[in-house]
Amino acid sequence: MDATTRFAVQDLYTDYVRCVDDTQYHEWPDFFTDECMYRIVSRENFDAGLQMSALALESKAMLKDRVYGMNETIFHAPYMQRHVVGAPRILGSKDGVIRAEANYIVLRTKLDAFSEVFNTGRYVDTIVSEEGRLKFRERICVFDSELVPNSIVYPI
Rank of each mutant, 00 (worst) to 15 (best):
D2P: 14
A3F: 04
F7I: 07
Q10H: 11
Q10E: 13
Q10Y: 09
D15Y: 02
D15Q: 11
R18N: 04
D21Q: 05
D21L: 00
Q24P: 02
H26R: 09
W28C: 05
P29G: 02
D34P: 00
E35W: 03
C36Q: 01
M37G: 07
R39E: 07
I40P: 00
S42A: 07
F46Y: 10
D47G: 03
G49W: 00
L50D: 13
Q51R: 14
M52L: 15
M52Y: 12
S53Q: 03
S53A: 15
L55C: 14
L57F: 10
L63M: 06
L63H: 02
Y68I: 09
Y68N: 10
M70E: 08
N71T: 15
E72Y: 10
T73Q: 07
I74G: 04
V84K: 02
I90L: 13
S93F: 05
S93Y: 05
S93G: 09
K94N: 09
G96S: 11
I98W: 10
A100Q: 05
Y104M: 14
K110I: 09
L111S: 12
D112V: 11
D112T: 14
A113H: 13
F114H: 05
S115F: 00
S115D: 01
E116C: 07
F118S: 02
N119H: 11
Y123F: 15
V124Q: 10
V124W: 04
T126K: 05
I127Q: 02
S129A: 13
G132I: 08
G132M: 05
R133K: 15
L134V: 07
R137C: 01
I140C: 13
I140H: 07
I140P: 01
C141M: 12
C141Q: 13
D144L: 04
S145G: 06
S145P: 04
S151Y: 06
I156S: 00
